[in-house]
């Protein structure tokens, strides 16, 4: 399958671009986000809850004088809640021209992937969270799930968190 895709890419004359992905863990699965969207990775700090905020919003943090909204990634992905521990991290990202933080179980590494190494995710299910996955890649017999951060929130939700 991968070979055929490579052949197709070469035949199309397209460059097999290498992309860098920051990987993190959530519920024992490895996810990747485009390194270009990651601003920094923070240790867990106190998150101030915001009254009346949507359920997927954990609260806000003060990042060098800037207020950053932190999203509950587990909740957003439909996963069970988990206790915060030493390995928990807040990844500051930029998406849809906004800076937000996402709470993850741990951050692993930065990996290099050719575009040709990225496959489509199985097209099963119509749940909302299915749209977050932009592709999957097989690395060392482990599946890396690539997240499309721009789709982490809908347009309305992006607009909503600016008002917090």
């Amino acid at each position: 399958m991968t070979d055929s895709r490579n052949v197709a890419a070469v035949a199309a004359g397209k460059e097999d671009v290498v992309l860098q992905w920051v990987t993190f863990k959530l519920d024992n699965e490895t996810y990747g986000i485009n390194v270009m969207q990651v601003q920094e990775v923070l240790r867990y700090t106190e998150i101030a809850p915001v009254p009346g905020a949507p359920l997927y919003v954990l609260g806000i943090i003060n990042l060098r004088g800037n207020v950053v909204t932190v999203i509950d990634t587990r909740s957003r992905f439909g996963l069970d809640a988990a206790e915060v521990d030493d390995s928990s991290r807040i990844v500051i990202i930029e998406a849809e021209k906004q800076v937000i933080g996402i709470l993850v179980d741990s951050v692993a590494e930065v990996v290099y992937l050719r575009r040709s190494e990225i496959d489509n995710a199985p097209n099963v299910g119509t749940e909302e969270s299915a749209k977050f996955i932009q592709g999957v890649s097989n690395r060392d017999n482990e599946l890396l799930i690539l997240v499309d951060l721009d789709k982490l929130l809908s347009d309305d939700e992006w607009a909503e968190i600016t008002q917090l």
Binding site: L79, P122, V136, N141, E142, L143
Partner: peptide, 18 residues
């Protein structure tokens, strides 16, 4: 061996194994 769970899939979809 190892099944990778994928979010947003039906309950009966255990995940993906390479």
């Amino acid at each position: 061996e190892h099944i990778n769970h994928l979010i947003g899939r039906p309950d009966w979809f255990l995940g993906v194994q390479t």
